[in-house]
Amino acid sequence: MGRVKIARKSTFIDMTAMSDVTVLLLTFFMLTSTFLSKEPATVITPASVSTEKVQETNVLQVLVSPKGQVWLTMNNDTSAQWSNAKMRVAMLDEVTQLYNAQHKNKISFTPAQKATFSKLGAFGVPLSQMGEFLSLADEPEGLTKMDQWLAGEDNNPKHISGIPIAKENNEDNLNEFQLWIKAARQAGNDNLSQAMKDGAGVAIKADQNTSFDIIHMVMDNLQTVRQNKFTLLTALKAGGE
């Protein structure tokens, strides 16, 4: 009786080609994408037909939450002279000066606190609480605590997230938001000052369902410090014109 011989086939699958493809994909993703930055509020920007691309460097971004809280983010030169860290320290020094000229309760920051500030992403707590906020970084799990504070999830009613901003504002008594804008312009970084003058240096990022009331407040505050030109961040409208 002849038996049918079943040839034993190896189950080895050659993964080299697969590996090639995945490496290519990986390279593509690494080169084309930018990292999402951590932000205290998630916003969906409105769609627009405008195709102007956002400036990548020398931008002061104003993040507005639907509740009317305001945070700032900065993207600076890659040059050594005005790196993100250096610019931030200069800005903090400048805003401290402006704040102290206006208020009785003087504030000051230690070098360690300044170093922490220079590494922050989006920032925005009242200046009177800034010291306490920055000192959190030295505590265990400090960075998580800082994020929670900014997101308003730390269950401490005293901790305020967002830069103080008000509807009523005048040039003689600027609120903290206006002080920050002024500080950014005066901090000595000519590239940023120029960009802000052109209007490309200040970008408002707000959710599409934010009420006009809040947007108007932010715009009005900017106008008072003579920041009359600015840009609105939008997403590209599908379909377009």
């Binding site: 993703f29 994408s33 106008q223 009359n228 961040l233």
Partner: peptide
């Protein structure tokens, strides 16, 4: 590689925001 790709897909964005310039008085 697949894990890395997944990581990059979730943590990055490819869409660059557009801007609308306005000037106010």
């Amino acid at each position: 590689n697949m894990l890395l790709i997944t990581f990059f897909m979730l943590c990055t964005t490819m869409i660059k925001s557009q801007t609308l310039t306005i000037a106010l008085p």
